[in-house]
Design a protein around this nucleic acid. Sequence first.
DNA 1: AGTTCGATCGCCT
DNA 2: GGCGATCGAACTG
Length: 198
Amino acid sequence: MDSASPLPRSFYERDTVRVARDLLGKILVHRGSSGRIVETEAYLGTGDEAAHFARGITPRTRVIFGPPGHAYVYLIYGMYHCLNLVAEPANVAGCVLIRAIEPLTGLDRIRRRRPGARALEHLANGPGKLTRAFGITGRHNGADVTRGPITVHASEPDLPVRVGISPRIGISKAPELPLRFFVEGNRFVSPLKSAPRR
DNA sequence: AGTTCGATCGCCT
DNA sequence: GGCGATCGAACTG
């Protein structure tokens, strides 16, 4: 699978959890910047009360029921956008929230979109931060990430990653399920709510 | 038509 | 650790 072309739709047309795990280490590209996905969360079509689409199809969740490999972008707290990638075949719900990215190229542009943020680790280590860092907004809802302008690519070489698993972050309306996946030991992963004690 | 509240972040103490 | 920002989707009546 060559890194020049985006991941094919078949990559996304699979079980949501597998897509979430396999997205770790992949490269997201948009507007002259790129970065490595280091943290994701899976939102499932069945038995997942925390998912936006738990109550079925609405104007907002329409894209999640559509074909895989598209972006689901929503506004949260009136000020941040969150980027998800739609998984599963058409008419089956399931999506993956991109929670953190390790910036790789186009750092000057990323820094310009993130005024105030200093350390490299803080530019895209959260779902709201990374959309801002990469210039992703509600206009991109429904965009086909196998075509662009947002694309996702295999890394070259495609290094194996140690996958960490934890409950999802910030879930209040359902028991937290172990559906958060991250690159073990990577310093660009989002900060935990309560800092780990030693 | 009015209300509630969230898959967040950064600034304040 | 606490809280305010800021808005639209979804739910209530």
